Computed example of a mutant assay.
Amino acid sequence: MLFDLDGTLVDSAPDLAGAVNEMRLNRGMATLPLEALRPHVGTGARGMLNVALQLTPEHADYEASKSEFLDRYEARIVQETRLFDQVLELLKSLQVAGIPWGIVTNKAERFAMPLTRQLGLDSAAFAVIGGDTTAHSKPHPAPLLEAAKRGGMDPQRCIYVGDDERDIIAGRAAGMGTVAAGWGYLGKGKPIEAWDADIVLSSPSGILKLLGLA
């Protein structure tokens, strides 16, 4: 079983929002509420800088601001980040049942590795694949196929769980079953029901029911 990270296993929105709000404060601007920033977390630095500072990649200050944002985020990577409710129970149940699980995220290894280590996920996961682990990131299937390879698994016997349409596209392209995580960030694009996932679940505990473990 494979999982996306941000918005699926962990709620990292408070720290990502905190980093960009630090930038606003540093520029003499008021902070934005978490509710205004949360929907943009899945789009990474590009989305956060756009909504918080109205900066696009074409802007002369974009690259410097992106570096500042990433540095600030790295400095507070697990200050407020936590596992979503029911995730710890889910992962422990998978382990007890002998079902191996791994993580495939578009988060660069620079952030994915320390985050999973500090939350205690890396020791239990058979693989942590970052957005720069392979030559392609999601929605390309390469990261998912790399994870399956490391786990010695047939991709067609894997299930991938994610909270973004890119996750579902990547999972289907890899030949995996797909679960759309309705408890995640979801973003501003198509409604989750239009992602063409095999199933949409509203909570992590639904995975246990799907697998016949609850």
Rank of each mutant, 00 (worst) to 15 (best):
L2V: 12
F3D: 03
L5H: 01
L5P: 00
L5F: 01
L5G: 00
S12P: 01
A13V: 10
L16M: 15
G18C: 12
V20K: 05
V20Y: 06
M23G: 07
N26F: 08
N26S: 15
R27D: 11
R27H: 09
M29E: 15
M29R: 14
A30G: 07
E35D: 14
A36C: 12
P39G: 02
T43I: 11
A45S: 15
M48T: 06
L49V: 12
L49F: 07
V51F: 01
A52N: 09
L55R: 11
T56R: 13
L70W: 08
L70G: 07
D71S: 11
R76M: 14
R76S: 13
V78F: 00
E80C: 12
E80Y: 12
T81N: 02
F84M: 04
D85F: 07
D85T: 15
L90F: 03
L90V: 02
L90H: 01
K92M: 11
V96I: 14
V96Q: 13
A97I: 13
W101V: 07
G102S: 05
V104D: 00
V104F: 00
V104S: 01
T105A: 00
N106M: 04
N106G: 04
K107I: 06
E109V: 08
F111M: 09
M113V: 15
P114N: 09
L115C: 03
L115G: 02
T116V: 07
L121E: 05
D122Y: 02
S123P: 05
A127F: 02
V128K: 02
V128D: 00
G130D: 10
T134N: 03
A135V: 12
A135Y: 08
H136R: 15
S137A: 15
K138I: 05
K138C: 02
L145H: 03
E146F: 13
A147I: 12
A148G: 10
K149S: 15
C158R: 05
I159A: 11
Y160N: 11
Y160Q: 12
Y160G: 08
D163E: 13
D164M: 14
A170T: 12
G175W: 05
A180F: 01
W183E: 03
W183C: 00
G184M: 01
L186M: 07
K188P: 06
G189T: 14
P191L: 07
E193S: 15
W195A: 10
D196P: 05
L201D: 04
L201S: 01
L201T: 06
S202I: 07
S205W: 06
G206T: 08
L210D: 06
L210K: 08
L210C: 05
